[in-house]
Structure formats: C-alpha cells, structure tokens
Design a protein around this nucleic acid. Structure first.
Lengths: 218, 218
DNA sequence: CCTACCGATCGGTAGG
DNA sequence: CCTACCGATCGGTAGG
C-alpha cells in the first residue's frame, strides 16, 4: 500500500513517500486507528493525540481531516455499519446460491447464516468498528444517532422475516420483536467476554446460539 | 463526624438540617449520586465536581470520603453487586417457600424467578449500580476487577444447577456454559434499549426471555 | 467538609 | 500536515 524510502530526517515521525503523499486514505488510517483505540480504551479516555500518534501524525493533524473528535467517532461508526450491511448481504447471497431451495423454505438455515455473520462482524479480525458503535453511542449527537438507527434498521431488516417465519412454524416461542432484541443482546454481549485464544470458537458459539434460540422442527 | 453551625452565608449550597448532620451516610449519598451520573454520562465524562454538586458538596469534598474518583466507581460497583446478590437470595427463598415441591423439581420455575429478579435489578427503580458495573469495568484496576469477578461468581452460582437441570431435561439445547453467557447477554443488553415508558413491561420481557430460551417439557 | 489552588491534559486553532 | 499555542477542565491536595 505504501513504500518507505529512507531519507535524512533522522528520527521522529514516520517517513512520507510518494505513495502516501496526497493520499485520501490518511483519513482511513485515522479511522482505523481511532476504532482500535476507542475500542480498547473508550472514547473519552482516548485523546486526539493518541489517535494522531497511531496514524504517525502530529497532535493537531487529525483536525485537518476531521473537524472534531466526535466527527471521527461518528466516521468509525458509520464505516462499521456500512461494512457490516454489505458483508451481511454478501453472506445471504452466497447462502441463497448454495441452496437450490427457495429462500424462506429454510428459515433456520438463514438464521444460522445471519448469526454466524454477526459474530464474525463482532469478533472477527479487524472487528473494532461495530463494538465501538455499540458501546459509545452515548458520545454522538442525537442527529448522528438517528442516521445510525436508519443503518441499523437496514442491517436488521433481513432478520425480521426469518424470525417471523420461525415464530409461525412454532420454532421461536416468544414475541418476534422482543425475541429480536433479546437475540441481538445475546450476540452483542459476546464482545464483553469472548476470547478467541481460549474457550469456544466462533463457530461453536454460533451453533450454541442457534440451538438456544430455535427449537427443532416439531 | 463534623457539625455544621448555621452561619451567615446567604445562598448557595443546600442547607444542612439536624437530620443530615453527623451522618455517616454522606458517603452513601455520594455513591448513589455517582451511580446516577456514571450511568447517564459514563465514568470519564462525569467530573468529580458533578458528583460533589449532586451531593450538595464543594468540589474538593468527595476526596474526603474517597481517595480517588476510581475508588468511588469501585464502591458503586461493589455496592451494586452485594445488593443484587442479597436480592436474588431473597427472591429464591420466597420462591422456595411458596412452592411445596422440592427445589430442583421445577427448574423452569426457578429460572423464571432468576430472570425476573435480574431484570428488576437491571431495570427497576434505583437500578444504576449494576449497569455501571456492566459498562464501566474498563475503568477499574485488575485487582478490583478480580474481586468483582468473585462476587459475580456468587451471583451466578444459583443459575448453574438450574441451567444444568434444564439441559439434562432436554429443555435447554446448548452447551450450559455458553447458554449461560448468551442468556446473561440477552438480559444485560436490555439496559441499552428497554424503556419503562413504552413498549413491553418488565414482566412481559421476563416471560419472553423464558419462552425464548427454554423449551416446553417434551 | 470548604477554600484556594496546582500541575497536567485535553480538544481545538492560526498560520504557515 | 506541522508548529506553537490557547483556554478550559480535570483530578487531586494542603491547610484549616
């Protein structure tokens, strides 16, 4: 992505090269670094100086790319949501192609795909964006929260008919709306305790969740 | 501890009365006020000045009662856990008395009691302590976290045999440990979205959770 | 528990 | 994007 050429400046900030220069993706670097720091330390406990250093910049430079620390936080959240939505769409498309049967014929299988993908988004590599969105929403404005709510609605949209179908089939024994909220809670909370290095794998976790929520076909 | 004599200062801080005076419970007031603020704004975004004002003190005074802001946070969490443990024990005792049958004969009923009580602890009136513990644990020391983990173990202890019994009866179709983590996630997440003023009641929520996780007796 | 205060840190900006 | 800087706020303390 970028090469580093040695030059005179003996120490201090990271070298710039032709490849980075004028690159709009310094912005992306800031977002990615901020996501990591916001997740590890929290929004308030992360200084804009920390973020600048993470991207190899000086303390004031993030404000060349973002007008405020809050704007950076929002950028992290929005990028996370858009990526999650796209990834979920891809997973659903792949599942639809794999099966010859109609979608909707196998709601349990679809829920398995949705759950698996959701855990990947939450716990997979590079998965700082959504946890930040989930745990730092207090720090953004009401307007920003409203926009994110729209994106969240888009993300949740495919879940609704699946849960409804399971409910209709008697395999999901709770009010569909409450079931959705409870299920997302169970999944989202995993960022608090799941440790890739020990215990279950993400796949086992997804299987356990599915078994817990959905009853076998009667 | 210290008396306040009425003097000239015409306005400003709340008046002290005979009832408050010499009261060791200024400490409790600080804890309760801090819990409210920590929950609403987060630990980092709450200043010790905010907390002092909430208790009707001057800015430096909380440090007469607590050696640091972090100590206050920890006090909130520990008080919350001890209250939750006691409340849960009471609920279990009441349930055992109500039923003539043996405990363990009706694990589903016991889980219903545990879930209902847990929602009350999370969402009921004065329920700021546990949400603070759940969402601010990043801000305490490893040592403090370890002590809280012990208390959490105490709280979770009654859940384990109940879940195990349901699993053995084929009514809980997931690994017991993962089921416990997922169930707590589903419950704990409710503090993010539950609104007493609209939508379901706490009772309906508890019923939905039970129906979602536990299958009817085959 | 109040008064008065300190050192440190922070988000943000002007000017290049 | 860096340099140099500002005003505000914050946790905490001494001394009473």
């Amino acid at each position: 992505m970028d090469q580093h050429v040695a030059h005179k400046r003996p120490r201090g900030r990271p070298r710039k090269t032709v490849a980075d220069r004028d690159d709009g993706n310094r912005r992306q670097q800031l977002i990615a670094g901020a996501a990591r720091l916001f997740r590890r330390k929290g929004f308030d406990a992360t200084s804009t100086r920390d973020i600048a250093a993470e991207a190899g910049m000086q303390s004031g430079s993030p404000f060349y790319h973002f007008k405020s620390k809050g704007a950076l936080l929002y950028a992290v959240m929005e990028a996370g949501m858009r990526a999650a939505i796209e990834r979920q769409g891809t997973a659903l498309k792949a599942a639809a192609l794999q099966k010859s049967e109609q979608i909707g014929q196998d709601p349990r299988g679809l829920l398995a795909v949705l759950i698996q993908n959701h855990f990947d988004v939450l716990l997979g590599p590079g998965s700082d964006f959504i946890p930040v969105m989930l745990y730092e929403s207090r720090a953004i404005t009401a307007r920003q929260r409203a926009t994110l709510a729209t994106l969240q609605g888009e993300y949740e949209a495919p879940w609704v008919p699946v849960l409804q179908a399971l409910h209709d089939a008697g395999q999901l024994r709770a009010d569909v709306k409450l079931a959705r909220l409870l299920i997302f809670g169970a999944l989202n909370w995993s960022v608090q305790w799941f440790d890739r290095r020990k215990g279950a794998t993400v796949d086992e976790l997804a299987a356990a969740a599915l078994a817990l929520f959905v009853q076998e076909k009667p």
